[in-house]
Amino acid sequence: MESDVYSRKCGSRQVLDRIGDRWSVLVVLTLAEGTKRYGELAQRIEGVSQKMLTQTLRALERDGLVTRTVYASVPPRVDYALTDLGRSLLDLVAGLGSWATTHLAEVEAARARYDAR
């Protein structure tokens, strides 16, 4: 693996791509509230398609950020939760959410100025 974060082949770049993805951020924030079933995640994260939620959960599981627990029941039950590694992201992701909330008015004003040009 290359060690240049700007290169597509760099492992660090791949990790940044994963944790910087909008759906990944929202899944991590939702799972910070506790273990969720797929339907709960889909309902909480407005606008995410079934395909994107499934892909995001699989990618986060593959990267060791999320666990998927399947229970042998009828109907089958699947729970998703953050791993210790996933929980280590919470301060960073919560900080992004807090920044977005704090600076929303400024961003909206900048958008309005830009759009008015």
Rank of each mutant, 00 (worst) to 15 (best):
L41R: 07
L41M: 12
A42D: 06
Q43F: 13
R44K: 15
R44S: 15
I45L: 13
E46P: 02
G47M: 14
V48D: 07
V48Y: 11
S49W: 02
M52Q: 13
M52C: 14
M52F: 13
L53Q: 14
L53T: 13
T54R: 15
Q55K: 15
Q55A: 15
Q55C: 14
T56P: 11
L57E: 12
R58G: 10
A59I: 12
L60W: 02
L60P: 00
E61H: 13
E61G: 09
R62A: 13
D63H: 08
D63K: 03
D63S: 11
D63Q: 04
G64S: 03
G64P: 04
L65S: 02
V66T: 01
V66D: 00
V66W: 00
T69R: 11
T69L: 12
V70I: 11
V70F: 05
V70L: 08
Y71P: 00
Y71M: 11
Y71V: 13
A72Y: 05
A72N: 12
S73K: 12
S73E: 13
V74H: 09
V74A: 12
P75K: 06
P76A: 12
P76C: 09
R77K: 13
R77G: 01
R77H: 06
V78F: 05
D79R: 08
D79Q: 06
D79M: 10
D79S: 12
Y80K: 03
Y80E: 02
A81V: 07
L82R: 02
L82D: 04
T83H: 03
T83R: 05
D84G: 08
L85H: 03
R87D: 04
L89Q: 09
L89I: 08
L92E: 08
L92V: 13
V93R: 05
V93D: 04
A94R: 13
G95Y: 06
G95F: 10
G95V: 09
L96W: 10
L96M: 12
L96Y: 12
L96C: 09
G97N: 11
G97P: 01
W99K: 03
W99R: 07
W99E: 04
A100Y: 04
A100I: 05
T101V: 07
T101P: 00
T102G: 00
H103E: 04
L104M: 02
L104T: 02
L104H: 03
A105C: 00
A105D: 08
V107E: 02
V107G: 01
E108Y: 01
E108P: 01
E108L: 13
A109L: 11
A109S: 10
A110H: 05
R111Q: 13
A112Y: 09
A112D: 14
R113Q: 14
R113K: 15
R113D: 14
Y114E: 15
D115I: 14
D115R: 15
